[in-house]
Amino acid sequence: MRKLTRLVLKNFLCIIGIMVVQGSVVYAEPNQELVHKNVAMTPFYWVIIIVGGCIAITLTYVSWRKYKGEKKKKKLKEDKTVD
């Protein structure tokens, strides 16, 4: 296991050394088509978030009301007192 760790570490250090010795840095420029495409999709993402959020909130509320109703129904069934 130690031999494997040493080998991996040695290879990693060799790669880092080669990168440092080369010394040339290349900066990528963003593709303008992709930037415009992402900006155009932003309103679509907002619509998805808003509609999905409304659906999630509605389903949560309905589930909570159903839970409370079943709990109340069960309590009324167990209550055998006569008025």
Rank of each mutant, 00 (worst) to 15 (best):
F44H: 14
M41Y: 12
I48N: 07
L4G: 01
V82I: 12
N38V: 12
A56S: 06
V21M: 14
T58R: 13
Y61I: 15
F44K: 14
G53I: 04
G17Q: 03
V20M: 13
I16G: 00
K71V: 06
L34C: 00
L7H: 09
C14H: 12
D83S: 04
L59Y: 07
L9I: 03
M1D: 07
V62H: 02
L9G: 01
K80H: 11
P30I: 09
I18Y: 12
K37G: 03
I15L: 14
S24F: 15
N31V: 10
V51I: 15
N11W: 06
K74D: 08
D83A: 11
K37P: 01
P43M: 09
V82C: 03
V21T: 14
G69V: 03
E70S: 03
L9P: 00
Y27G: 08
I57H: 04
F12L: 08
K80D: 09
G17A: 11
R65N: 04
W64I: 10
K72T: 01
A28P: 01
K37F: 14
G23F: 12
K75P: 00
Y27M: 12
C54D: 04
V51C: 11
M41F: 13
T60L: 13
K75R: 11
S63H: 03
F44C: 05
I50P: 01
I18T: 13
C54M: 14
T42P: 00
K74L: 10
R65H: 05
K72H: 07
M19D: 07
V82Q: 06
V35C: 05
A28G: 09
L7M: 05
E78C: 02
D83R: 08
G53P: 01
R6Y: 02
V8Q: 05
L34R: 11
M1Y: 06
N11P: 00
V39S: 05
V62E: 04
A40W: 05
C54S: 12
V47C: 08
Q32V: 06
R65L: 09
M41R: 14
D79P: 00
V47P: 00
L7D: 05
Y67W: 13
P43A: 11
N31D: 15
V8W: 07
D83Q: 05
N11Q: 07
Q32T: 03
A28C: 06
V21I: 15
T5F: 10
L4W: 02
S24N: 14
V20L: 15
Y67N: 08
I55G: 01
K77L: 13
A28K: 10
G69W: 08
I55F: 09
L76C: 06
G53L: 07
P30Y: 11
M19I: 14
I55C: 08
I55E: 02
Y61P: 01
K80W: 04
T5V: 07
M19W: 10
W64M: 11
L34D: 11
K66T: 10
K66L: 12
K74I: 02
K68H: 03
D83H: 04
T58N: 11
N11C: 02
V8I: 14
T5N: 04
E78D: 07
R6V: 01
K37Y: 13
K77V: 10
V51A: 14
L13Y: 02
L34S: 07
I49Q: 11
K68A: 12
I57G: 05
M1F: 07
